[in-house]
Write a protein that binds this DNA or RNA. Sequence first.
DNA 1: GTCTATAATTTGATAGAC
DNA 2: GTCTATCAAATTATAGAC
Lengths: 229, 229
Amino acid sequence: MEMAVKKIQPLNARQRREAAKQNLREEILAVSRGIIAAEGYAALTMRKLAERIGYSPASLYMHFRSREEIAQEVSRDGYVNLLAELNAASTPHRNDPAARLRAMAGAYISFGLKNPQTYALIFMEDPAYLKAAYAEQREDDPGTQAYMLLVDLASGLIAAGMKPSKVGKPARAVTAIEFAEAIWAALHGVVSLKLTCPVFPTSPAEVLTDVIVETLLVGLNASVKKAPR
Amino acid sequence: MEMAVKKIQPLNARQRREAAKQNLREEILAVSRGIIAAEGYAALTMRKLAERIGYSPASLYMHFRSREEIAQEVSRDGYVNLLAELNAASTPHRNDPAARLRAMAGAYISFGLKNPQTYALIFMEDPAYLKAAYAEQREDDPGTQAYMLLVDLASGLIAAGMKPSKVGKPARAVTAIEFAEAIWAALHGVVSLKLTCPVFPTSPAEVLTDVIVETLLVGLNASVKKAPR
DNA sequence: GTCTATAATTTGATAGAC
DNA sequence: GTCTATCAAATTATAGAC
């Protein structure tokens, strides 16, 4: 009985301190996400950030070493959301690689267009501050997981006989990693061009994506017909 | 006789002033190109620029309204070079659309990888200062010409029966502009990803380009076989 | 832990002497 | 046209009081 009560009791002083510190850290991140999403990474200044959370600029440095460390965390958070959308698009089409490609491609450009500033932070910002994040290459890193999901998509296409054209001389088969990276690059091109160029391309991102994906699929299907059955 | 001598005579005061002013303007641009090419647009500060040309910062404002105006000129210059390389790649393959696509794609990513900072200035920088340039849409603008060259490439492919897969619902044929922009976006994705991401993609840009271009070509060729002859 | 105050720097752009 | 000197405005980050 006593023990049960004890477990429900409020946190002790030390725990409360820890919780408060954790909460403030989370609030800093939440506000940072908001600023970046609305105005971009360049607009994330320590002064503005401090003002919005109701603390002084100096206090921020109790929770983060630097502005870049905040950017790293926000970036990681963006990867989490991207991964979630890619997973949601991928899951219903486990047994249909072509449909899976269409769905994931749509989810990718949709994410980029709906979260332009976050997308820019992750993929289009000067990458110096991301090196640390990439250097880890931990398996639970959401960016790594999104990457692996793309590789899995490419593997599925290849396994179904939908192989990209051979490349190089002498000609050799394309690996799943190369295939995945090629797909990623093409999609990234659509999103990033839309985000940076004010007038070009004139066509909607969805149309450009369709042109690329559907024409690639025709090319891939050509290899299916030739494959032994 | 007098007249002939007159024509050879040194410039008068006014002409010399004009020439000197023009020369200084060109020197400012040349040094700016160098700084941007070596260190990127962010490193182009008026102080550094003034120091390198041996004038004071204030003097720069006699020749350019602002830093952005310099960026516009350098950007235009980059377009001139890009256009030249695209033209050189295109010309030998006027009668072979597929070979022309391969050559132009190679020239495009080669330009981007060899001139990363200039490429970033043109296509990846915050585009506010480019709006003026784009707004003109003059026919002699090198950027517009490069764009039109791509559209011509797409037109050539389509005319040869190499049509991209239909898109939308109800399905409709892809226009040359959409096709050109899709190709451009995919190539831009390869270059820009290589320039901003330190570790991904792991595959060389040339391989990614090959995967995209060659697989697209298979898809395009599929439409040729179906075409009436 | 949080604050005030400020250091230290860098920037684009300008005023006025010459 | 060019210079010196400086403005005005940002920025990140820190020192020291409380």
